[in-house]
Amino acid sequence: MSSLQGYLLLSALLFAVGLAGALTRRNAILVLIGIELMLNSANLNFIAFWRYGPAPAALTGIMFAIFSIGIAAAEAAVGLAIILAAYRHSGTTDLDEMNSLKG
């Protein structure tokens, strides 16, 4: 098993853990955190491919990861703000009880 394979498998595992969290948790904040985890696993892929790729001097993988971290920060801020607004509206962060969304 090569090292790149190890990083990719770890990243896939982290993605699966994040996905499982996002799909199964009841608390909306933890669902958001699961999504963050999935973004992180994608970043790990970028960095691993950058390091093992043919042209590491081009810095493409690093740039992807930097922008992705920035976007994740913006996403976390807006996501938590939406959860707070929803909590103020419905009085809960339990996703099973937030079932009144209508068109």
Binding site: A16, L19, A22, L23, T24, R25, L95
Partner: peptide, 15 residues
């Protein structure tokens, strides 16, 4: 419970 009612489906999808 900390897990939602469809936790089996979610776990299967993730796996």
């Amino acid at each position: 419970s900390v897990f939602s009612s469809h936790w089996i489906a979610g776990g299967v999808v993730a796996a």
